[in-house]
Simulated scan of single mutants.
Amino acid sequence: MNAKFLLRASLTTLCLAMAIGLTSCTSALERRIARNPDLYNKLPTSDRMLVEQGRIREGFTKESVFLSWGRPDQVSEGSQKGTKIEKWTYVGTQPVYTDSFGWGGMGWGRGYGRGYGYYGAWDPFWGGYGPTVTYVPYKAASVTFRGNRVTEYLRGPQ
Rank of each mutant, 00 (worst) to 15 (best):
M106T: 15
Y138C: 07
L14P: 00
T13W: 05
S24P: 00
P44W: 12
R71T: 01
A140L: 04
L50W: 04
M18C: 12
D73K: 13
F5R: 15
P37F: 11
C15W: 08
T89C: 08
T83E: 12
S46F: 08
E152H: 09
Q158T: 15
D47G: 03
T12S: 09
T132N: 04
Y112T: 04
S142I: 07
G70W: 01
E152A: 13
R31H: 10
Q80E: 13
P44F: 11
T134G: 01
R110W: 08
F145Q: 01
G107H: 15
F125G: 15
L7A: 12
P72H: 08
Y119C: 00
K62H: 00
F60Y: 05
I33M: 08
T144S: 02
V96I: 09
A17N: 03
F60H: 06
G130W: 02
T13I: 06
C25F: 02
T134Y: 06
D47Y: 05
W103G: 13
G78C: 06
R31G: 11
P37M: 12
G111K: 00
Y153I: 02
Y135M: 10
E152L: 10
T151R: 15
R71E: 06
G113W: 05
P131K: 12
G147E: 14
E63I: 01
Y116R: 10
R8K: 14
M1N: 09
G105V: 08
L154G: 15
L14Y: 01
E86K: 04
E77L: 13
Q53V: 03
S10T: 13
V91Q: 09
Y112W: 10
G147Q: 13
P131I: 07
G156H: 03
V91E: 08
L43S: 05
S100M: 14
G128V: 08
L67Y: 12
G130C: 04
A141G: 09
E58S: 13
G128Y: 02
K84T: 15
P131A: 10
P95G: 00
A19Q: 07
R155Q: 14
A121R: 12
T144K: 06
I33H: 09
E77R: 09
W126S: 10
G78S: 08
T83H: 09
M1K: 06
R114S: 11
R8G: 09
R57M: 02
D123C: 01
E63N: 06
E152G: 10
S64Y: 06
F101V: 08
V91H: 12
T98P: 01
P37K: 13
F5M: 11
Y97L: 11
Y153G: 04
G92T: 11
G82I: 06
T61C: 04
L50A: 07
K4Q: 14
A19V: 07
G104V: 05
P131G: 10
E52M: 08
G113M: 10
E86Y: 04
N2L: 01
K4R: 15
G70K: 03
P44G: 12
G130R: 00
K84C: 14
Q80K: 13
L154H: 15
